[in-house]
């Protein structure tokens, strides 16, 4: 795990939640830990941001919620991706890749101030 933990850029958290749920049902805690693990601890998921984002996605009909029980027998609310959510994930992923690709291209340009 790196020492530098970064806060999630605006809009990226919803995308990562959708991505996390593409693997199957998750509760909020599981989603947060999964994102932190997958990012090697670089991304800091704060509950104060995670749950409002999850409820926002639910209101938009991109995910669905259902109470369930964890492996340890604890009650938790599990979220799954809807068909609309799956389509939204594809579209947002495409836009994100385009955006970050563009930013990366600019940053890698040779010139004053750049290391490349």
């Amino acid at each position: 795990m790196t020492d530098e933990r970064l806060e999630m850029p605006r809009g990226a958290l919803e995308l990562l939640v959708l991505k996390g749920l593409a693997r199957g049902a998750h509760h909020g805690y599981g989603l947060a830990r999964w994102i932190e693990r997958r990012s090697d601890g670089v991304l800091l998921i704060e509950e104060g941001s995670l749950y409002p984002a999850v409820h926002r996605l639910e209101r938009k009909g991109l995910i669905e919620a259902e109470w369930g029980v964890t492996d340890t027998g604890r009650r938790a609310k599990y979220y799954t991706l809807t068909d609309d959510g799956r389509r939204e994930l594809r579209e947002r992923t495409r836009r994100w890749n385009k955006l970050t690709g563009g930013v990366a291209a600019v940053l890698s340009a040779r010139g004053a101030g750049g290391s490349a």
């Binding site: 509760h27 909020g28 805690y29 599981g30 509950e47 749950y51 409820h55 340890t72 604890r74 609310k77």
Partner: peptide, 16 residues
């Protein structure tokens, strides 16, 4: 319902 969900998150953190 929201409070129960958030409390559940805390309990899962305690477990871990």
């Amino acid at each position: 319902d929201v409070q129960a969900e958030l409390e559940s998150h805390v309990e899962l953190t305690v477990e871990a």
